[in-house]
Design a protein around this nucleic acid. Sequence first.
RNA 1: UGGGCCGUCGCCAAGCGGUUAAGGCACCGGGUUUUGAUCCCGGCAUUCGGAGGUUCGAAUCCUCCCGGCCCAGCCA
Length: 553
Amino acid sequence: MSRSEPVEASNFIRNIVESDLAAGKNDGQVVTRFPPEPNGYLHIGHAKSICLNFGTAERYGGRCNLRFDDTNPVRESEEYAHAIEEDVRWLGYEWDRLCHASDYFDELYEYACQLIREGKAYVDSSSAEEVREMRGTLTKPGTPGPYRNRSVEENLDLFQRMKDGEFDDGEHILRARIDLSAGNINMRDPTLYRIRKVRHVRTGDAWSIYPMYDYTHCVSDAIEGITHSLCTLEFEDHRPLYDWVLDELGTPCHPQQIEFARLSLEYTVLSKRRLIQLVEENHVHGWDDPRMPTIVGMRRRGYTAASLRDFCERIGITKNDAWIEMAVLETCIRDHLNRDAPRRLAVLDPVRVIITSLPENHEQTLTFANHPQDEGAGSRPVPFTREIFIERDDFAEIPPPKYQRLVPGGEVRLRGAYVIRCEEVIKDDAGIVTELRCSHDADTLGKKPEGRKVKGVIHWVSVKHGIPAEIRLYNPLFTLPDPGKADSLVEAINPESEIILTSCVVEPSLSAAAPEEHFQFERIGYFVGDRHDHSKESLVFNRTVTLRDTWAS
RNA sequence: UGGGCCGUCGCCAAGCGGUUAAGGCACCGGGUUUUGAUCCCGGCAUUCGGAGGUUCGAAUCCUCCCGGCCCAGCCA
C-alpha cells in the first residue's frame, strides 16, 4: 500500500524565501501570517493561503500568526472569528500568535500623527462624492481639493477630535498626501482613517475612527516582524502604498509583500459575496452545506484535512490565473480515503432477491476484510441469508453492451459470497421489477465456479439484518465551469446537486458508525456519517465522492 | 485609452542561456483483481502565445505584436 508522496514542485515564493535565507536576510527568520477578516466563513481558496502561509513557516522552521483583520466593525463578528480558528486548527495548523489588527490601534494612531506632523497626511473634510470626483479616473489624474494644504496644527487638532468623537461618520477622513496624478489610483492620496461611530467587538467604544486596510496591514505586519507578507494578486497595485507607509514611517521592520494567484475551482464559486448569496437566499442549507466550498462544508461532505492540504500542494503557487478542474480535488480525496477508509456494503436503491435454492431459514456469517490491501484493518462479520437486497442498477432485463452484472438467466458473483443465477423476474403491474428469484452455486464460496467464468461482482445486504439509512448524494453545485460568468448565478445551480435517498439499506456493522467516520461503500463511493444528523438510531451518510468509474456508462 | 500583472501539453505546473522540455490531473492502451475500485506497466509538447533579434547555443536575454486578468470603497 505504500504510495510515494507526489514529487513536490518548487514555486516562486519558496525560491524567494530560500534565496533570502541563503543571503542571510531577516536573520535567517521566516515569519508569515494568515490575515482573514472575520466577516465570513473560510473556503477552499483560504485553505490555499493557509497552507501557503503556515506551510512556508513550517518548512523553513519559522512561525506563522493568525491575525484577524478587524478594522471594519460594521461587518465583523466574533462568531466568524471562532469559526475561523476552528477551521485553521482542523486543517492541521497551529499559529504562533493569535493577533488582531485592533491590538495595534494605539500604535496605528501614533504613527498616523507622525505622518501628519511630517506633512504626509491630512484631514480632508470633503464629502465621499467629492473625494471620488477629485480622485480622477483610470485615465484622468486626480485634482487637489481645498483641504490638502491644511496646517500640521489644524490636521493634528482635527484628527484628535475625530478620535474623540466630535464628528459624525463621513464628516472627515485622514488621507495620506502622496500623488494625485499617480497612474496607480491607490497612490492618489488614499484614505487612512474614517469615522465610524460603531462599537468594535474587541475595543468596544474606545474608538470612533478606524484605520483602513492599506494603512493597517503593512503596519501590523511590521509590528509582528513578518518577513514575507503573502497575499493575493489583487493587492499587487497596493504594494507601492504598503511600501510607502513603512518607508515614510521608518519602521524598523519592513516585510516583503509577495502576491500569488487566488484559487479558481471549476463548477463552484469562491467569492464571499456569492457564497453569502447562496446561504441567504437558501439555495443551500447553510455555510456547512456539503455542497459548499467552505472548509466546514467540505468537512461535512467528508473531505479530510489531509486531502485538502494535499490539494493545495498539488495545485501549486503561481501568478497565473489558473482554473483547477474538480478532478484534481476528487483525486486527492479518493487517494486518501482509498488508503484509510474501511469498506462496507450498502444498497442505495434496493431490489429484493430470493435465493430459492437456499433453505427458508438459511443464515450464515461471512467474514469480510475491512480493506483489500491492508490486512491490519481487520475484518468484520457480515450475515448472509436467503433473502437479500441488491442494487436496482445491478440488474438489467435488457443489458446495455458490455454489461457485466445480473441479467435474466445470467450469473453474477455476490461480493464475498456465492455466485447466483437469475431464474425468474417478478414485476408489478407497472412493469417495475419487484423481486428476482435466483439459484446459487454452493461450491463458489471463496472459490471460482467450475468450468465457466463469472466476471461480474455485485454488492448486497441481508434483508433480515440490513439497517435502513438515509444517504445523501452530492454533485457539483453548478452546471457551469465558471458559474460567476452566468447571467444569473441562481440559474446556474445544478438541480441535482443534492439527492436524498431515504430507502437505503446498509450492512449491520454500520449501526456502530460515528458522525464524521469515513467509509467506502463498495462499488459506489466514499461516504461519511453526517456531522450533525447522523446517529446510531438514525443513520445518515453523505457521499463524499464516487469511486472512479471507467466503465462508459 | 492611465497603472499593475500573466501567457510552457485538455487542466495545473517545474524550468532562471547548454536538460532527451520534470511531475501531477485528465485521457488512451495493456496486466493483476471476488469493488467495472485499488495496484502495476506503457503512451501522451521536435516544442514553450506570435513574429523578429542577440548568441556557437534561447522556453530562458532584447524588441514589437497578440490574448487574458486586476484597479477609480470613507471594503478587505
